[in-house]
Structures are given as C-alpha cells and as structure tokens.
Write a protein that binds this DNA or RNA. Structure first.
Lengths: 112, 112
DNA sequence: TCTAGATACCTAGAGGCTCTAGGTCAAGGC
DNA sequence: GCCTTGACCTAGAGCCTCTAGGTATCTAGA
C-alpha cells in the first residue's frame, strides 16, 4: 500500500497543506479557517471561500480530515468542525518536510 | 498602466519565477535550464521539458525574457538562448519579495 | 424602513498551470 | 542495428484556484 494520493503539495500551489497546519492545532470550521489563515499570515494568504470549501471537501474525501456538524444557538448558522485524522497527521508531517526542502531549493535558485 | 500580467507567482505553483532566477544569472537555453534547475536544487525541483518549454514561451510572450536562436556546429541541434528583459528583471525583483513574504506566511502557519 | 454587513455554508464554470506522452532529427557508443 | 544524448516541440488530460454567484438569519445604521 502507500503512495496512494500523496497529500497536498504546497510547492504546486495547493493550499491544502496550510489548512492541515491550522486544523492540526485544534478543531476548526471552514469560515474560521478563512479568517485564521488571513490573520496568521498578516493577510499574505487570503483565500476566498470558493477555494477553501472545495479544498476541505477534497481533504475529507481523501481521509486527511474528518468533519462533524455542530448545531449552534437559535438562528446562528451551524458549523462543520474539522479535525485531523491519523492519515492527516502523517500527511502534515510529510508536507512539512517537503516544504522545508522546497524552500531551500527555491532559495538556492533565487539566491535569497 | 502597469498591473498588466503580474508575473509568475511561486506561491501558486508557477515555476516561471525559478526560470527567471536562473536566466537572471546568465543567458541560458531551455535544455540547460532543465538541467540547471535539477542540479541547483539537488533534484528537488525536477521539471519535465513539457513544463519548461511552454513556460519559456509564456515568459517570452509576456515580455519577461527575450530569446534568440544560436546555430551550433555541424549537426549539433541549434539552441534558443534566453535573457531577462527589463520587465523581467523587475518581475524577478517583485517575485523575490513575494516569495519572502509567502515563505514567512507559510512558516507561521506550519510552525516551522 | 431599507440596506448593508456579518456569520456560515454551498456550487458551477472559467482559467491557467503542470505533467504525460508522445514526436523530430542527428551524432556517437556498443 | 539500437539506444542514449542533445535540443527542440505539442496536444490533451488533470487538477487546482478563483470568480461570482446563491441560501439563510441576525444586527446595525441611515
């Protein structure tokens, strides 16, 4: 087994890894992820909802995160909270290392 | 004017910026760029020709690089050498800064 | 009152990129 | 005779982001 669906690759412009990074800290819901991403990165990463929600569905489909619906108080919209699965924790660890390698590689080309 | 074709964005998985980085060092041809990219990054960035040649055409179309054909010796294939244009130098400078910002942003999310 | 914004979810389709999987042609090694 | 190397090229698949909407409720402001 293994080598099945290699997980999100930041170096190829896939922001799924950043979502894994946030969800790895604590359970989080989509709308919150959008805001946290913007806040944590000082606005540098500012993904529209049309990017984040489909990405969450892919990550869940691929078994890297697991979601559950949480009903909120009267008239407040319900939320879908996500947490990392074991596969997601692994993908995050792998992704972090790939990111380190890619950073060094790009820096060596760009001379930073 | 300006704000026309913002140049390649590494954070979105566009490798054009890495090509600009190499060509910015010295005049280079496609086949050489493929090899240099692999060598410089220790194999981490290993783009197939089917990625690099179309990227070179886009960069040239967008006025960031300029190419010229160089005939080689008897029976050796000719090469198309590329150099940065002024716009390309600017795009490289902008891209480098964006890359620095994105690196910091991703690190702050991934906690590296 | 009416509008706008925030909260929270969703989707269809366009656009644009990488990558696969080929192809061309000549020289040189085995 | 065949494979590898050098050097270029392309069509199409695949996949992702992003645009531009939509739903629904509540609150604030003009």
């Amino acid at each position: 087994m293994s080598e099945r669906g290699r997980g999100p690759d930041l170096s190829r412009g896939e922001f799924g890894l950043l979502i894994l990074g946030l969800v790895g800290r604590r359970e989080m819901y989509g709308y919150e992820i959008v805001a946290q991403l913007r806040a944590t990165t000082d606005g540098v990463v500012d993904l529209p909802e049309g990017t984040v929600y489909p990405a969450l569905r892919r990550l869940e489909r691929d078994g890297l995160i697991a979601g559950r619906w949480v009903e909120m108080a009267e008239g407040t919209p319900r939320r879908r909270y996500y947490r990392l699965t074991t596969a997601g924790e692994h993908a995050l660890a792998v992704g972090r290392e790939e990111w380190l390698r890619f950073k060094a590689a790009a820096d060596s080309v760009l001379g930073s």
